[in-house]
Simulated assay, not measured.
Amino acid sequence: MTRRRPKGRGLRSRRSLPAAGPDAGTILRLAVLLQAGIAPAAAWHHLAAAGDGSAAAVSTRIEAGAGVAAAVRAQGSAWAAVAAAWRIAETVGAPLAASLRGIASALDDGERSRAEVRVALAEPAGTARLMSWLPLVGVGLGAALGFDTLRTLAATPAGIACAIAGLALIFTARRWSSALVRRADPDDAVPGMGADLLAIALSGGVSIERAQRIVGDAGGAQLDAETRGILTLSRSAGVPAAELLRAGATLARHRARTDGRLRAARLSSRLLIPLGVCTLPAFLLLGVAPMLLSVLSATPLTL
């Protein structure tokens, strides 16, 4: 599973990347090792020996005396859910391997959802970047047609005014389009993770109230309205809440995927606004206006 990478990260070795987000494959392999009876610290060590950079960082901290959950949390905020799940499972005595399998599934589902949304966003975002070059293409087109557009834009008062206004509009259009794309781009949070963590706590046999306290102490997210509704349903119907919570978490990720696709569809229409307000006027100022000014300057005035 691929995560966003900061600039310059490709210059570092794999073992020096503790800030990377958790990989579902790493968590799943860890669950298999634990299920086979390997101790948690040894499981991280085996993963590190196999070349997993994140596991190497965790294993180093464990060897230095840190607890497993603390060593995982030190990986950065992206690993908070994994660290919380580990601490919750240890606190309530829930099967750690099964808990990690659930977290791995949630991480994989969340990443698939983000990937689908970003693929859907790629086309309108690429079109916006391409159209932002249209005004500069107009300058080249005027020169290709034999008009001295560059001299007009650089040496005449009207041309300089057109150049300044056109470049300002290009800058505004690019910033505006980038802001629209960023707003539509999904974040790295995994929807439904709070419900998954609470389900791990409840699988240890504790009460709902104690499970909520344990999740909060482990650094889990605050319960949202939907999760509280699931707990209310569990109490009123007298059914176990853990499976309801897992189903609710899966549904939350499905809704996030659908919402992301809708954002991508709306983005195509919204990007037409900076195109019409900024890009097309910039094309007229940088491409069409210099040609007209060149024609007017070359035409002798007759009385």
Rank of each mutant, 00 (worst) to 15 (best):
P6I: 11
P6L: 13
P6G: 10
P6F: 13
R9V: 12
R9P: 00
R9H: 06
R9A: 14
G10I: 12
G10F: 12
R12L: 15
R12C: 04
S13E: 06
S13Y: 00
S13N: 02
R14L: 12
R15K: 10
R15I: 03
S16L: 14
S16Q: 14
S16T: 08
L17F: 02
L17M: 14
P18M: 12
A19R: 11
A20I: 11
A20Q: 05
G21T: 13
P22T: 12
D23F: 04
D23E: 15
A24P: 15
A24I: 06
G25W: 07
G25R: 14
G25H: 09
T26W: 07
I27Q: 04
I27K: 03
L28I: 01
R29Y: 12
L30P: 02
L30T: 15
L30W: 12
L30G: 09
L30D: 10
V32W: 05
V32E: 05
V32Q: 06
L34H: 08
L34M: 08
L34E: 11
Q35I: 00
Q35L: 04
A36M: 10
A36R: 08
G37E: 13
G37I: 07
G37S: 02
I38P: 00
I38R: 13
I38Y: 11
I38F: 10
I38H: 11
A39R: 13
A41I: 04
A41P: 12
A41H: 10
A43K: 06
A43Y: 00
W44R: 06
W44Q: 05
H45P: 04
H45F: 03
H45R: 15
H46E: 14
H46R: 15
L47Y: 03
L47W: 01
L47R: 14
A48Y: 08
A49G: 05
A50V: 09
G51A: 10
G51N: 11
G51R: 08
D52W: 03
G53L: 05
G53Y: 11
G53K: 09
G53H: 10
S54F: 02
A55F: 13
A55K: 05
A57G: 06
A57V: 05
V58G: 02
S59L: 12
T60S: 14
T60A: 15
I62G: 06
I62F: 04
A64E: 08
A64P: 04
G65T: 01
G65P: 08
G65H: 11
G65W: 02
G65D: 03
G65S: 04
G67H: 00
G67D: 04
G67V: 01
V68I: 15
A69V: 02
A69P: 07
A70S: 09
A70V: 05
A71T: 07
V72D: 00
V72M: 11
R73G: 03
R73N: 00
A74N: 01
A74H: 06
A74E: 08
Q75T: 01
G76F: 08
A78K: 12
A78G: 09
W79A: 07
W79M: 11
A80Q: 06
A80K: 04
